[in-house]
Design a protein around this nucleic acid. Sequence first.
DNA 1: AAAATGACCAGGA
DNA 2: GTCCTGGCCATTT
Length: 111
Amino acid sequence: MKPETLNFFERVYEVARQIPHGRVTSYGAIANYLGANRGARMVGYAMNGSHSKDVPAHRVVNRKGLLTGKHHFDGTNLMQQLLESEGIEVIDNQIQNLETHFWNPSELLSE
DNA sequence: AAAATGACCAGGA
DNA sequence: GTCCTGGCCATTT
């Protein structure tokens, strides 16, 4: 890992870490908050190293609320279990009431 | 050094 | 309405 690039990753980790308990957000939302609307891919990629951090990657899903990255977790249903543990309804790797549980990084400023 | 890949998103056909 | 293409930025081969 090149520390210089952590500049971008660091932002992702920082934002992801600020995700409130029982809330979820999308890669695009984080990317947008960072200023890279189309850089969402990098956000997901950044999560690759998230497991080395205290970043709750299980609270980060794609725009559709689908647990696309659950494959990268320990088990198969671990990510889903964690989300359900937070009070989020997850069915078939898809978050229910996504808009209800959705959390926008911009709210971080409002808080 | 160049090309391909990736936990994505938005717009165009 | 669904399907496909482009772009984004860093990592990996």
